[in-house]
Design a protein around this nucleic acid. Structure first.
Lengths: 167, 167
DNA sequence: AGCAGAAACATAACAAGATATATATCAAGT
DNA sequence: ACTTGATATATATCTTGTTATGTTTCTGCT
């Protein structure tokens, strides 16, 4: 039995592999975040971070910043507003525009994430990708192997511990 | 305005970027395949290729080979059977098992793809990823830049032309 | 002022992955 | 032979992206 046909399919299926690896990384990160008591769905994290670092934005601006289609942002903001993470309102100058701000709850989570969650993920992923040698396709293969071996979970835990120990 | 916040977010959003790049590559490939008269949805292409190179498989075997969840295979096979690309039937030895085979139409498409479609994609992607220098995150950034510049479309066209010219 | 076209967002439907769970069948122990 | 547990697949629902299209509001021209 072929274990991973897609990986054996050369460059032809590279798109599939990149997508798969990306989803795997997101899944690991989300699981870890949940374990840290972070209730926000992982797909909404970039919105939170964008609003944290760059202040209030419109729907269209967020779509451009996050490079996702505008209807996706529309729906995501609805969900985040229901979850109490953001507040939105029509602007006075142009009443078509919906201005989105972090709520108190969202601000608090973003501050905490900036302090102790994102740096851990950043350090873990940086180390996950360190020493990926060879040509690009080999690097992807190495990354896939590390992900399926559970290396990223271990790194997240270790990095969190290290930060906790040194602070 | 920040153009691509995710890309500016360091390693933290690498998963999102990988996923995004993979989807972009798949989209370009699918568009090109359609232009070549290939009617099969791109997500079903790996199934076609797996059956072409490794013969009849069960639902579970396909899930393992393609590293996707079994319900996804179930649904995809339903669609492909409706589209006339595959035929499936319960096996005699174990009537729980659904054995999936390429139909005549599926066999014909796979043969054509193996001859003149997959090699083009392979060559194009190989060149797309050639000379990606630097550390992994820089390589991803370079890949993203090439994708958004439309380099992959151009390569597909050029590779197809080259193959056509030399054969 | 009023109308045409553009722009911002919302809504609907689709795609392709996921998980959770139900159903049907098989295998093994008594 | 029957019951119990495992296995293969199907079904239902969720997630998060997409495109297509509808609605509201603005802008600019006459």
């Amino acid at each position: 039995m072929v274990e991973d046909f897609v990986a054996s399919f050369g460059h032809t299926a590279l798109g599939t592999r990149l997508k798969r690896s990306g989803m795997a990384m997101q899944a690991v990160a989300q699981k870890w975040l949940q374990a840290q008591g972070c209730e926000l769905p992982s797909a909404q994290m970039p919105v939170l971070a964008a609003l944290h670092f760059h202040g209030a934005q419109s729907t269209g601006e967020l779509a451009q910043m996050l490079v996702i289609a505008q209807p996706g942002v529309s729906r995501m903001i609805d969900q985040m507003e229901k979850g109490g993470w953001v507040v939105s309102s029509a602007t006075d100058a142009d009443r078509r525009v919906r201005r989105i701000t972090l709520s108190d709850r969202g601000t608090a989570l973003a501050a905490r994430a900036a302090r102790e969650l994102w740096p851990v993920i950043d350090a873990a992923v940086a180390e996950l990708c360190a020493d990926l040698d060879g040509c690009f396709i080999d690097q992807i293969a190495a990354l896939e192997a590390r992900l399926s071996a559970g290396v990223m979970q271990d790194l997240l835990d270790r990095k969190a511990e290290e930060r906790g120990a040194t602070q």
